[in-house]
Simulated scan of single mutants.
Amino acid sequence: MTPAKPVPLLNAANVLTVARMVLVPVFVVCVVASRMTHDGWQLAAGLTFVVASATDYVDGWIARTHNLVTSFGKVADPIADKALTGAALVLLSFYDKLPWWVTALILIREWGVTALRFWVIRHGVIPASRGGKVKTALQILAIGWYLTPLPPSLAAVGPWIMAAALVVTVVTGLDYVARAIRIRRASLAVGGVYPAPPEAPAVAPQADEPVA
């Protein structure tokens, strides 16, 4: 049998992942420059956030379609996602656009799910759920709404979108906890451990799944 051709580290999916990581500090600079009061810089921040978020879906599609999943991507992709979302939430709270407890709850859930994935990686993989994808879409929409300078009537919709995102974030987070416990218990019940295959090192799944 012909051995599988190794996936090159330098590929389109990884380039987009790195681009998203580079856009995080650019986004932060735009928000700080705007102080959430200067429409020009605020609009630039919103556009940077939307473009960076879009690369998550594009690099995931490229990686799956062209079989370009790499160990680097598996680690860097979720880090880039959480860095972007985390920076946006923290800055919105810093400029009093979003309550700190909302930011804390979302970040605890995001990093908690990542920790869960590592906790059960030897017993199985927790796949991304539809709820997780809805959560991601709602978070992006809510953050983008807050960042975009809008007339008061439209800006008032932002908290409702964020409320929906928060509910889905918490519910899917609890679902991931339950699924992780079930996977671990099922594995231990049969005395089994499911190691990752040689070509897939035991690291967090690439957020091709646009993420948990």
Results as ranks from 00 to 15, higher is better:
W100Y: 15
I183P: 04
L141I: 08
M162I: 10
H38Q: 07
R64Q: 10
P195Q: 03
G131C: 01
V58C: 04
V26G: 12
L107V: 00
L188T: 15
A137S: 06
A13Y: 08
A164Q: 01
C30L: 13
D56Y: 01
V69E: 09
H123S: 15
Y194L: 14
L154M: 00
V28H: 10
L92W: 09
I143W: 13
P198E: 01
G191H: 14
Y57M: 14
Y194N: 08
V177G: 10
D77A: 03
P3A: 01
A44C: 11
P3H: 07
P195E: 04
A44D: 03
V203Q: 11
K5N: 00
L84Q: 14
N67R: 05
A54L: 15
I140Q: 11
A207W: 03
H66L: 15
Y146D: 09
R182C: 08
L105I: 09
V24T: 13
P78I: 03
P6L: 01
L84V: 07
A76H: 02
G40R: 03
Y146F: 12
I140P: 01
I181F: 09
P149Q: 06
M1H: 02
L43A: 06
P25Q: 10
A156L: 00
V113P: 12
R179Q: 10
G158A: 09
I181K: 12
E199P: 00
L98C: 13
D81K: 14
I183F: 11
T55C: 04
A12C: 14
V125T: 07
W101A: 10
V211A: 08
